Amino acid sequence: MITGSIVAIVTPMTESGEVDHVSFGELVERQVTSGTSAIVSVGTTGESSTLSVSEHTEIIRRTIEVVAGRVPVIAGTGANSTSEAIHLTRAALAAGADGALLVTPYYNKPPQEGLYRHFRAVAEAVDIPQYLYNVPGRTGCDMLPSTVARLSEIPNIVGLKEAAGDLDRVRELVALELADFALYSGDDSTACASMLAGFHGNISVTANVAPEAMARMCAAALEGDAEAASEIDANLVGLHSALFAEPNPIPVKWALAEMGLMPGGIRLPLVELDEWHHEDVRAALRSASLLA
């Protein structure tokens, strides 16, 4: 089981919107050498929704190439069409990914039985470890713990990224005591509390800019050292908030560009961070000692 800080890595782009593979390789290397436990490639933070299928699979391959076996690579392969999710997951397996992260189908709002059959169909079609991803604030669809419990019985469905940001939901999932099933926070602001409550790690946006601190915070929380984990997290609270001043990944891409780690490109319909938020993000970076 993968534990600790898992980064949902951005996909750097030039100002004209082309994927910047050189900067991407440098960002991946920075994560590996900073203690990040695994990398989610082309998830929501990686702008999967604006990438072509060929770009999608190429970025997965590039991630695997740079990582060179040092940490697991989990590919984002979710879609609101079951056949498309199967296609993307097969492509991730062919590229050499260690696992696939599949978001609940967005926009079409399937009921719980539809969610169960969707994820079961992908799992039966592609023999790769698969992680469910529940983020109702973005998809308009909430996968309930009872459905997670049903899906956990499928052998290659091995975990869940829960991003509702609700600690009651966290406690409900922990109480299920699902055997050999990983529970990850997908909400940086509640990740520390979630791990102290029994989650196994955090799939993080904040780790893009503060990988070392997030790795230390997750390690302390998983060891049950609430004081140390909370102290580290306190220095990151501003980032957890500022990086969601506008829809992800707008703020985090701007922050990484401000740090000089990549160019500032982003694809429509997303746009660059509004100037109104610039100083707030800079202040959060300074508070975390990431910007002079």
Rank of each mutant, 00 (worst) to 15 (best):
M13V: 05
R62T: 11
L270Q: 13
D166T: 02
P251M: 04
Q31W: 01
E258G: 07
L151R: 02
T63R: 09
E29V: 03
Y116M: 04
L196E: 06
D280Y: 10
P136F: 06
I2Y: 06
V281C: 08
S185Q: 13
E113A: 14
G99A: 06
E65Y: 09
F119C: 00
T89D: 07
I9S: 09
A79C: 14
G140W: 03
A193I: 03
Y184A: 03
Q112T: 04
S289L: 09
T50C: 09
R282A: 14
A242T: 09
L273R: 01
A283L: 10
L196K: 08
P145A: 06
T11C: 09
L291V: 09
L256W: 11
E15D: 14
N202G: 06
D98H: 15
I64Q: 03
E113P: 03
A220S: 14
V205C: 07
G137E: 00
D127W: 07
L173G: 01
T50M: 07
D274S: 15
I59K: 02
A123F: 01
A288V: 06
A97K: 00
V281L: 07
A92S: 13
L290S: 09
H240G: 08
A284L: 11
G76W: 01
R61D: 10
A242V: 03
A179Q: 14
G78Q: 05
A175D: 15
T63Q: 07
P211W: 01
D188N: 10
T63M: 06
N208I: 10
T104F: 01
L115Y: 03
R90G: 08
N134C: 06
L132K: 00
I86T: 06
V73M: 03
A91K: 12
L196H: 10
G165A: 07
R30M: 07
E275V: 12
L102C: 10
A164T: 06
I203L: 10
E275A: 15
A79H: 13
T44N: 11
T139P: 06
A292F: 00
R267T: 05
A38K: 00
A226Q: 14
G165N: 00
V22F: 11
M13Q: 09
S16G: 13
V205L: 10
L291H: 05
A220R: 03
R117W: 12
T45R: 02
H21K: 11
E58N: 10
G165T: 01
T33R: 15
A97M: 05
E153H: 11
T190G: 03
T57I: 11
L183W: 00
I74F: 08
L236F: 10
E65T: 09
E15S: 13
R169C: 04
M143W: 00
E258V: 08
H240S: 12
S34G: 08
P12T: 13
A179N: 15
A125G: 07
R171Q: 14
E258S: 12
S52T: 15
G46M: 02
A234R: 15
H56N: 10
A163C: 01
T190M: 08
S83F: 11
T206A: 15
D280W: 08
I6A: 00
L236S: 05
V22K: 13
A283G: 12
M195R: 03
T104D: 04
V71G: 02
